[in-house]
């Protein structure tokens, strides 16, 4: 095989061209999806679980009686646990609000995954590949928010009615909220956000200064969970 020096140099340069192209593509001109939870609206009905119900029913999330083995994607947690403090205003003292995967900008869970079964998409969504997951649960040890669930046994017996349009998981894999990527693909907002009658969960593009979520965040102070850890969550709480 005869290769001239010129040809060799041309081909040798190819990987660098590819790298440069990749670098250009990863510039933040696409969306970064995020959620702002307006607690004043959520608190209007303390016993409401519509966001959880909509999500869990559609995504075939099992209802497991043993709290130690629960699988949860979005659920309500006592406010004093999510943002521990003292002398809370009376309206927050016993209140609870929705928690879910924070879709961190710098997620510890994807860093530790030994197979790349959990990964961050360019639009900021932290995803799970349930077919690649080996069930080592390292991501659960790494997540500082307890947002991940493991299928300690087969989830199917605990799913009341299976939604055939969405995959069921198997025993031995980790799962969590995906910001409803399947709905984003067809231009719809996540289910929890749509199910809320009070419009307390505002979903949108954090990179777009004119989006509803950014308008809200520039008008009112948005808190994020455990910012001291440097994970940079994409879920904001407005009190």
């Amino acid at each position: 095989m005869n290769i001239s020096r010129k040809t060799f140099v041309k081909f040798a340069a190819l990987p660098f061209v590819a790298l440069a192209a990749k670098g250009a593509r990863s510039k933040p001109n696409g969306p970064r999806w995020g959620m702002a939870i307006d607690h004043r609206n959520c608190a209007k009905d303390e016993g409401c679980t519509l966001c959880t119900d909509a999500c869990h029913l559609t995504h075939n999330v099992p209802t497991i009686p043993d709290a130690r083995r629960e699988v949860k994607w979005v659920w309500k947690e006592r406010f004093s646990k999510v943002f521990p403090s003292e002398y809370l205003p009376a309206r927050l003292e016993n209140a609870s609000g929705p928690v879910m995967c924070n879709h961190c900008e710098n997620p510890p869970c994807t860093r530790v995954c030994p197979t790349g079964a959990t990964f961050k998409r360019p639009d900021g969504i932290v995803m799970m590949d349930w077919h690649r997951c080996i069930g080592c649960r390292y991501c659960m040890a790494a997540c500082p928010y307890g947002s991940r669930s493991f299928n300690w046994s087969d989830p199917r017996p605990h799913i009341r009615s299976v939604n055939a349009a969405y995959p069921c998981r198997t025993k031995g894999v980790v799962e969590k909220c995906t910001f409803c990527v399947e709905r984003l693909d067809v231009g719809k907002a996540p289910l929890c956000s749509e199910a809320c009658p009070e419009k307390a969960l505002i979903f949108g593009d954090l990179n777009d200064p004119r989006s509803e979520i950014r308008t809200l965040l520039s008008a009112r102070y948005g808190l994020r969970r455990r910012t001291e850890l440097g994970t940079r969550p994409s879920v904001f709480y407005i009190l």
């Binding site: 197979t115 997951c133 080996i134 080592c136 493991f150 025993k171 031995g172 894999v173």
Partner: peptide, 8 residues
């Protein structure tokens, strides 16, 4: 300890 040992 693996949940899915076949995929290790």
């Amino acid at each position: 300890d693996m949940g899915q040992p076949a995929r290790v």
